[in-house]
Protein backbone atom coordinates (compact mmCIF):
# COMPACT_ATOMS: atom_id res chain seq x y z
CA UNK A 1 0.00 0.00 0.00
CA UNK A 2 2.70 2.49 -0.94
CA UNK A 3 2.59 4.88 -3.86
CA UNK A 4 5.02 4.36 -6.71
CA UNK A 5 7.74 6.97 -7.23
CA UNK A 6 6.83 10.36 -8.63
CA UNK A 7 8.11 13.88 -8.87
CA UNK A 8 6.51 16.83 -7.17
CA UNK A 9 5.99 20.51 -7.88
CA UNK A 10 4.23 23.05 -5.72
CA UNK A 11 2.93 25.83 -7.91
CA UNK A 12 1.98 29.40 -7.18
CA UNK A 13 0.50 30.43 -10.51
CA UNK A 14 -1.71 28.94 -13.18
CA UNK A 15 1.03 29.61 -15.76
CA UNK A 16 3.29 27.19 -13.86
CA UNK A 17 0.57 24.52 -14.02
CA UNK A 18 0.15 25.00 -17.76
CA UNK A 19 3.92 24.80 -18.31
CA UNK A 20 4.10 21.54 -16.32
CA UNK A 21 1.18 20.06 -18.25
CA UNK A 22 2.91 21.07 -21.50
CA UNK A 23 6.03 19.24 -20.36
CA UNK A 24 4.53 16.12 -18.77
CA UNK A 25 1.23 15.73 -20.63
CA UNK A 26 -1.15 13.27 -19.01
CA UNK A 27 1.66 11.91 -16.82
CA UNK A 28 1.09 14.96 -14.59
CA UNK A 29 -1.74 15.01 -12.09
CA UNK A 30 -3.07 17.82 -9.93
CA UNK A 31 -3.20 17.05 -6.22
CA UNK A 32 -5.67 19.11 -4.20
CA UNK A 33 -6.71 17.64 -0.83
CA UNK A 34 -5.40 14.24 -1.88
CA UNK A 35 -8.29 12.44 -0.18
CA UNK A 36 -9.15 10.52 -3.34
CA UNK A 37 -5.87 10.67 -5.22
CA UNK A 38 -3.59 9.47 -2.39
CA UNK A 39 -5.61 6.30 -1.68
CA UNK A 40 -5.69 5.65 -5.44
CA UNK A 41 -1.90 6.03 -5.53
CA UNK A 42 -1.46 3.81 -2.47
CA UNK A 43 -3.45 1.11 -4.25
CA UNK A 44 -1.51 1.86 -7.45
CA UNK A 45 -4.70 2.52 -9.36
CA UNK A 46 -3.06 5.86 -10.13
CA UNK A 47 0.66 6.28 -10.75
CA UNK A 48 1.31 9.82 -11.98
CA UNK A 49 4.90 10.77 -12.88
CA UNK A 50 4.40 14.26 -11.46
CA UNK A 51 2.13 15.67 -8.78
CA UNK A 52 1.23 19.31 -9.14
CA UNK A 53 0.33 20.62 -5.68
CA UNK A 54 -2.18 23.47 -6.03
CA UNK A 55 -2.57 24.18 -2.31
CA UNK A 56 -0.67 27.49 -2.54
CA UNK A 57 -2.28 28.65 -5.75
CA UNK A 58 -4.11 31.80 -4.76
CA UNK A 59 -6.32 31.96 -7.85
CA UNK A 60 -8.04 28.78 -6.62
CA UNK A 61 -8.78 30.00 -3.12
CA UNK A 62 -11.42 32.03 -1.39
CA UNK A 63 -15.17 32.42 -1.15
CA UNK A 64 -16.65 35.69 -2.37
CA UNK A 65 -19.99 37.12 -3.32
CA UNK A 66 -20.15 39.21 -6.49
CA UNK A 67 -23.69 40.53 -6.80
CA UNK A 68 -26.02 37.60 -7.39
CA UNK A 69 -23.22 35.03 -7.74
CA UNK A 70 -21.25 33.21 -5.10
CA UNK A 71 -17.75 32.33 -6.29
CA UNK A 72 -16.00 29.48 -4.53
CA UNK A 73 -12.37 28.75 -5.34
CA UNK A 74 -11.76 25.15 -6.41
CA UNK A 75 -9.19 24.72 -3.65
CA UNK A 76 -11.68 25.43 -0.86
CA UNK A 77 -11.55 22.71 1.73
CA UNK A 78 -14.82 21.19 2.96
CA UNK A 79 -14.13 22.49 6.45
CA UNK A 80 -13.93 26.07 5.11
CA UNK A 81 -17.20 25.66 3.22
CA UNK A 82 -18.87 24.33 6.31
CA UNK A 83 -17.81 27.27 8.49
CA UNK A 84 -18.39 30.02 5.94
CA UNK A 85 -21.32 32.29 6.91
CA UNK A 86 -21.45 33.42 3.29
CA UNK A 87 -22.04 29.86 2.07
CA UNK A 88 -24.64 29.22 4.79
CA UNK A 89 -26.59 32.25 3.61
CA UNK A 90 -26.07 32.18 -0.15
CA UNK A 91 -26.02 28.41 -0.72
CA UNK A 92 -27.73 26.72 2.23
CA UNK A 93 -27.78 23.41 0.36
CA UNK A 94 -23.98 23.25 0.33
CA UNK A 95 -23.79 24.17 4.00
CA UNK A 96 -26.11 21.31 4.84
CA UNK A 97 -24.37 18.83 2.57
CA UNK A 98 -20.84 19.05 3.96
CA UNK A 99 -21.47 17.08 7.18
CA UNK A 100 -22.69 14.15 5.06
CA UNK A 101 -19.32 13.80 3.32
CA UNK A 102 -16.90 11.27 4.77
CA UNK A 103 -15.58 12.12 8.24
CA UNK A 104 -14.22 15.19 10.01
CA UNK A 105 -10.58 14.14 9.45
CA UNK A 106 -11.21 13.89 5.69
CA UNK A 107 -13.27 17.06 5.48
CA UNK A 108 -10.32 18.96 6.96
CA UNK A 109 -8.29 18.21 3.81
CA UNK A 110 -10.66 17.38 0.93
CA UNK A 111 -11.65 20.19 -1.41
CA UNK A 112 -14.78 21.27 -3.25
CA UNK A 113 -13.00 21.33 -6.60
CA UNK A 114 -11.37 17.95 -5.99
CA UNK A 115 -14.74 16.32 -5.45
CA UNK A 116 -16.23 17.95 -8.56
CA UNK A 117 -13.23 17.04 -10.73
CA UNK A 118 -13.36 13.49 -9.43
CA UNK A 119 -17.09 13.20 -10.29
CA UNK A 120 -17.88 10.15 -8.22
CA UNK A 121 -21.57 9.47 -8.97
CA UNK A 122 -22.26 8.75 -5.28
CA UNK A 123 -20.70 12.03 -4.11
CA UNK A 124 -22.65 14.85 -2.58
CA UNK A 125 -20.88 17.85 -4.17
CA UNK A 126 -21.59 17.04 -7.84
CA UNK A 127 -25.30 16.58 -7.04
CA UNK A 128 -25.39 19.87 -5.14
CA UNK A 129 -23.61 21.63 -8.01
CA UNK A 130 -26.28 20.40 -10.43
CA UNK A 131 -29.16 21.25 -8.08
CA UNK A 132 -27.73 24.76 -7.59
CA UNK A 133 -27.11 25.28 -11.33
CA UNK A 134 -23.47 25.94 -10.64
CA UNK A 135 -21.10 27.01 -13.39
CA UNK A 136 -17.54 25.65 -13.48
CA UNK A 137 -14.77 28.07 -14.33
CA UNK A 138 -12.05 26.14 -16.15
CA UNK A 139 -8.67 27.39 -17.34
CA UNK A 140 -5.96 26.03 -19.59
CA UNK A 141 -3.05 27.48 -21.52
CA UNK A 142 -5.47 28.84 -24.15
CA UNK A 143 -7.70 30.72 -21.75
CA UNK A 144 -10.74 30.42 -19.55
CA UNK A 145 -14.16 28.92 -20.24
CA UNK A 146 -17.36 28.32 -18.29
CA UNK A 147 -19.26 25.05 -18.25
CA UNK A 148 -22.68 24.56 -16.63
CA UNK A 149 -22.94 21.70 -14.15
CA UNK A 150 -25.47 20.00 -16.46
CA UNK A 151 -22.76 19.71 -19.14
CA UNK A 152 -19.83 19.21 -16.78
CA UNK A 153 -20.72 15.76 -15.41
CA UNK A 154 -20.47 13.38 -18.35
CA UNK A 155 -20.33 9.90 -16.86
CA UNK A 156 -18.59 7.69 -14.32
CA UNK A 157 -15.66 9.84 -13.12
CA UNK A 158 -15.97 11.69 -16.43
CA UNK A 159 -16.21 15.46 -16.67
CA UNK A 160 -15.79 18.21 -19.22
CA UNK A 161 -12.22 18.67 -17.92
CA UNK A 162 -9.74 17.93 -20.71
CA UNK A 163 -6.06 17.08 -20.23
CA UNK A 164 -4.27 20.28 -19.23
CA UNK A 165 -7.40 21.86 -17.72
CA UNK A 166 -7.59 23.28 -14.22
CA UNK A 167 -10.87 23.76 -12.42
CA UNK A 168 -10.39 27.25 -11.02
CA UNK A 169 -13.65 28.13 -9.32
CA UNK A 170 -17.34 27.43 -9.15
CA UNK A 171 -19.99 30.11 -9.52
CA UNK A 172 -23.35 29.59 -7.89
CA UNK A 173 -26.43 31.81 -8.18
CA UNK A 174 -27.11 33.25 -4.73
CA UNK A 175 -30.25 31.78 -3.15
CA UNK A 176 -33.08 34.28 -3.55
CA UNK A 177 -35.57 34.93 -0.71
CA UNK A 178 -37.17 31.80 0.51
CA UNK A 179 -35.08 29.48 -1.66
CA UNK A 180 -34.45 26.38 0.38
CA UNK A 181 -31.83 23.70 0.02
CA UNK A 182 -32.28 20.24 1.46
CA UNK A 183 -30.21 17.08 1.22
CA UNK A 184 -30.94 13.57 2.40
CA UNK A 185 -29.10 10.34 1.86
CA UNK A 186 -29.33 6.74 2.92
CA UNK A 187 -26.08 5.21 4.12
CA UNK A 188 -25.20 2.09 6.04
CA UNK A 189 -22.85 3.95 8.36
CA UNK A 190 -22.24 7.63 9.00
CA UNK A 191 -19.73 8.95 6.47
CA UNK A 192 -20.18 6.23 3.87
CA UNK A 193 -20.93 7.04 0.28
CA UNK A 194 -24.69 7.21 -0.25
CA UNK A 195 -26.62 4.14 -1.39
CA UNK A 196 -29.04 6.74 -2.73
CA UNK A 197 -29.04 10.46 -2.06
CA UNK A 198 -31.13 13.47 -3.03
CA UNK A 199 -30.05 17.11 -3.14
CA UNK A 200 -32.89 19.55 -3.76
CA UNK A 201 -33.68 23.22 -4.00
CA UNK A 202 -37.05 24.92 -4.16
CA UNK A 203 -39.16 27.68 -2.76
CA UNK A 204 -42.15 26.81 -0.61
CA UNK A 205 -45.16 29.08 -0.14
CA UNK A 206 -48.80 28.33 0.67
CA UNK A 207 -48.25 24.61 0.46
CA UNK A 208 -46.76 24.89 -3.04
CA UNK A 209 -43.26 24.44 -4.29
CA UNK A 210 -41.93 26.70 -7.00
CA UNK A 211 -39.04 25.75 -9.24
CA UNK A 212 -37.96 22.65 -7.36
CA UNK A 213 -34.85 20.85 -8.60
CA UNK A 214 -34.39 17.27 -7.43
CA UNK A 215 -30.97 15.79 -8.10
CA UNK A 216 -30.38 12.16 -7.20
CA UNK A 217 -26.94 10.69 -6.60
CA UNK A 218 -25.77 7.11 -6.24
CA UNK A 219 -28.34 6.02 -8.83
CA UNK A 220 -26.42 6.17 -12.09
CA UNK A 221 -23.11 7.11 -13.65
CA UNK A 222 -23.57 10.81 -12.76
CA UNK A 223 -25.97 13.02 -10.77
CA UNK A 224 -29.47 12.85 -12.24
CA UNK A 225 -31.98 15.72 -12.40
CA UNK A 226 -35.50 14.34 -11.91
CA UNK A 227 -37.64 16.64 -14.08
CA UNK A 228 -40.75 14.44 -14.33
CA UNK A 229 -40.99 14.20 -10.57
CA UNK A 230 -40.76 17.99 -10.34
CA UNK A 231 -43.51 18.40 -12.97
CA UNK A 232 -45.83 16.15 -10.98
CA UNK A 233 -45.65 18.67 -8.14
CA UNK A 234 -46.14 21.72 -10.33
CA UNK A 235 -49.78 22.66 -9.99
CA UNK A 236 -51.67 23.47 -6.84
CA UNK A 237 -50.92 22.93 -3.20
CA UNK A 238 -49.05 19.70 -2.67
CA UNK A 239 -51.19 16.84 -1.35
CA UNK A 240 -50.11 13.31 -0.42
CA UNK A 241 -51.51 12.27 -3.84
CA UNK A 242 -49.19 14.72 -5.57
CA UNK A 243 -46.25 13.28 -3.71
CA UNK A 244 -47.27 9.75 -4.68
CA UNK A 245 -47.52 10.86 -8.32
CA UNK A 246 -44.10 12.43 -8.16
CA UNK A 247 -42.70 9.26 -6.63
CA UNK A 248 -44.25 7.22 -9.43
CA UNK A 249 -42.89 9.68 -12.01
CA UNK A 250 -39.35 8.91 -10.87
CA UNK A 251 -39.57 5.74 -12.96
CA UNK A 252 -39.65 7.99 -16.06
CA UNK A 253 -36.72 10.06 -14.81
CA UNK A 254 -34.26 7.20 -14.35
CA UNK A 255 -33.74 3.50 -13.83
CA UNK A 256 -31.13 3.17 -11.12
CA UNK A 257 -27.99 1.16 -11.70
CA UNK A 258 -27.47 -1.50 -9.06
CA UNK A 259 -24.23 -1.90 -7.16
CA UNK A 260 -22.73 -4.31 -4.64
CA UNK A 261 -25.02 -3.00 -1.89
CA UNK A 262 -28.36 -2.58 -3.65
CA UNK A 263 -30.31 -3.92 -6.57
CA UNK A 264 -31.87 -1.45 -9.02
CA UNK A 265 -35.29 -2.19 -7.49
CA UNK A 266 -34.06 -1.39 -3.99
CA UNK A 267 -32.49 1.83 -5.20
CA UNK A 268 -35.70 2.83 -6.98
CA UNK A 269 -37.60 2.25 -3.75
CA UNK A 270 -35.08 4.24 -1.69
CA UNK A 271 -35.26 7.09 -4.22
CA UNK A 272 -39.05 7.27 -3.76
CA UNK A 273 -38.64 7.30 0.02
CA UNK A 274 -36.12 10.13 -0.16
CA UNK A 275 -38.30 12.18 -2.50
CA UNK A 276 -41.17 11.99 -0.01
CA UNK A 277 -38.93 13.10 2.85
CA UNK A 278 -37.30 15.91 0.92
CA UNK A 279 -40.59 17.35 -0.35
CA UNK A 280 -41.92 17.43 3.23
CA UNK A 281 -38.76 19.11 4.45
CA UNK A 282 -38.90 21.73 1.71
CA UNK A 283 -42.56 22.47 2.51
CA UNK A 284 -41.84 22.74 6.22
CA UNK A 285 -38.68 24.79 5.74
CA UNK A 286 -36.40 22.45 7.63
Amino acid sequence: MKASAFDYARVESLEEVFALFAEYGDEARIIAGGQTLVPAMAMRVAAPALLIDISRLEALQGIARNGDRLRIGAFTRYVELQHSPLVAEAAPLLHRAIPLIAHEAIRSRGTFGGSLANADPASEMPACALALEAVMVIANAEGERRVAAADFFQGLYQTALEPGDVLVAVEIPVAQDGMQGVIEELVRRQGDYAMVGLAATGKAANGMLSGPRFVFFGVGDRPVLATKAAEALADGPISPEHIAEAQAALAQDFTPLGDIHCSPATKAHLARVLLGRVVSRLLEHR
Binding site: Y8, Q35, V38, P39, E104, I106, S108, R109
Partner: peptide
Protein backbone atom coordinates in the same frame (compact mmCIF):
# COMPACT_ATOMS: atom_id res chain seq x y z
CA UNK B 1 -4.87 22.28 14.40
CA UNK B 2 -7.32 20.03 12.55
CA UNK B 3 -7.56 16.27 12.66
CA UNK B 4 -6.43 14.60 9.45
CA UNK B 5 -5.30 11.25 8.06
CA UNK B 6 -1.50 11.05 8.19
CA UNK B 7 -1.65 8.24 5.57
CA UNK B 8 -3.48 10.47 3.07
CA UNK B 9 -1.00 13.32 3.16
CA UNK B 10 2.52 13.14 1.80
Amino acid sequence: GRIARACLTF
